Simulated assay, not measured.
Amino acid sequence: MRSLTQVLIALCVLHAILGVILPCWRGSYCFSQPEDYKSYAIINLFRDGWARVSILYWFGENNTVLIFKARLIGVPRLDSLTIIDDKELPVEYETVGKDRLLIYVLGAKWINVTYYTCTITFKREEIWVVNYTFPYVSFLVLPEKAVVLDINTLPLRIYSKDKRMVLQMPPGIVKVAYVLTLNSEVPISKKKETDVLSLLSAYIFPLAVTCIGGVVAWAIMMWYQGLKVSRLKGLLDDVDKEIIRLIEDMGGKAYQYEIQDKLELPKTTLWRHIVKLKECGILSIEKRGRTNYLKLRGRIFLKKLVRG
């Protein structure tokens, strides 16, 4: 009984020792990730497409991490790569692939990785696009005079620093399209002159051209109608003109028998005049049952034709 009690006590002591030692041992050699809310990246974009990336990885006050595997933003230019710890001392590292590093943290509170890269931007004609993935918050500093055209996700914050737009982006995929305007300042007087010229070229000039074109088209149409009227007046007799007047008085539409009743003409004679008016392009004939339905074409033009 006594030996059994001693065995149980020994097991409890061993369990307590392992509970203290194993977590420390495991934490010292595993690949750990820093706390989300204290890790971030700053990406400074330049006008030529290059970017200066500065990533801060936070591990905490009581850090037991010895080795940290970091995935970078883009492929770094190795001769520009520097890594320092919280004591501003250089940190040893090894490259693992194009965009990954094996960093020997050795218990530092935080480390800062800085480098230059040109692999997160590309240009399509005049439009620049920056595209990267980062698991923590990033601050994207656009070049001076940059204008954002498109963005894949809503920024957490937008502000200006040293005349440059800064986008505070949430974790995940970031894709921003932008264009660069002229870098030189334009005097205020020149800006006003440019604004006036832009207004003239955008609105007043097209409106003036449209008005002039409309006047010319109207003048050509009136000239053509006058020419057509003078030509038709020589072809139409008094009966033709009377038929046109009667149909006009009836709203521009009438049945053939209605015209025949008013003019008291033989059916064949009236039909000959109707066919003549149709061939001149003045009337259209629509068959309705056993009679014809007559319609005038171009009533304003026909008023000039039968005037006087």
Rank of each mutant, 00 (worst) to 15 (best):
Y159H: 11
Y159K: 02
S160D: 02
K161Y: 00
D162H: 10
D162I: 06
K163N: 12
R164M: 07
R164Q: 15
R164E: 07
M165R: 02
M165Y: 01
M165N: 02
M165V: 01
Q168W: 02
Q168E: 15
Q168A: 14
M169Q: 02
P171I: 02
G172P: 04
G172H: 05
G172A: 06
G172L: 04
I173T: 11
I173M: 08
K175E: 13
V176D: 11
A177N: 05
A177Y: 04
V179C: 06
V179Q: 10
L180D: 07
L180F: 12
T181P: 00
T181R: 09
T181I: 02
L182G: 12
L182R: 14
N183H: 10
N183G: 12
S184D: 11
V186I: 14
V186M: 05
I188V: 11
I188T: 14
K190Q: 14
K191T: 06
K192I: 15
K192A: 13
E193T: 12
T194K: 06
D195M: 13
V196Y: 15
L199A: 15
L200K: 12
S201A: 13
A202N: 11
A202H: 05
Y203I: 00
P206L: 03
P206S: 07
P206D: 07
L207Q: 13
A208P: 00
V209C: 05
